[in-house]
Simulated assay, not measured.
Amino acid sequence: MNDLTQTLAVSASAMKAQSTRLRYISENIANTDTPGFRRKMTSFEQVKEGGEVSGKIQTGGVRLDRTDLPQVFDPSHPMADETGYYEGSNVEMLIEMSDARQAQRSYEANIKMFDQARKMASSLLELLRR
């Protein structure tokens, strides 16, 4: 039974991590046209419990994409300099959409794993009741 509860905990941690990743992706998409906005990224880290790897994951800290911001020519923009340029956002919609799709699929896979472990635990408890 302990293995099944560990599987539930691993799946839940993965769903939480993918949820956090999706939040950053949605913030990036919302700020695509915000001048000077840098894309937010996160990484996944293994959780150690008692000095051993538990199988669970968590998100690391937020990192900003350090690629150069594109120079946008629009002399009428309030942030434009004397040459008519301002710094745009380095968010690429194609990258954000593919990252969102990958996070969604990973989330769905973890939901299926969680549900399967829950069904197995329920079946085991039903057998023990007999």
Rank of each mutant, 00 (worst) to 15 (best):
M1I: 14
D3Q: 15
T5G: 11
T5F: 15
T7Q: 08
L8S: 06
A9K: 05
A9N: 13
V10I: 15
S11P: 03
S11D: 09
A12W: 00
M15F: 01
K16Y: 00
K16R: 14
A17Y: 02
R21I: 11
R21Q: 15
L22Y: 05
I25N: 08
S26N: 13
E27V: 08
N31D: 10
N31L: 05
N31F: 04
D33H: 07
P35A: 02
R38I: 07
R39Y: 03
R39L: 12
K40T: 11
T42V: 15
S43T: 15
E45Q: 14
V47W: 14
K48P: 14
K48W: 15
G51T: 07
G51F: 01
G55H: 01
G55S: 02
G55T: 02
I57Y: 02
T59D: 05
V62S: 01
R63H: 04
L64Y: 12
D65W: 00
D65F: 00
T67M: 03
T67F: 00
D68V: 06
D68Q: 07
L69Y: 01
P70H: 00
V72R: 02
V72A: 06
V72E: 03
D74A: 06
S76M: 02
H77S: 02
H77F: 02
A80I: 03
D81V: 06
T83M: 07
T83C: 01
T83P: 04
G84N: 02
Y86C: 09
E87F: 00
S89C: 11
S89V: 10
E92T: 09
L94P: 06
L94W: 04
I95G: 05
I95H: 06
E96L: 03
D99T: 05
A100F: 07
A100E: 06
A100L: 09
Q102H: 08
Q102G: 04
S106Q: 12
S106L: 11
Y107E: 13
Y107I: 08
Y107W: 12
I111R: 00
K112L: 10
M113V: 12
D115N: 15
A121Y: 10
S122A: 14
L124Q: 12
L125R: 15
R129D: 11
R129M: 10
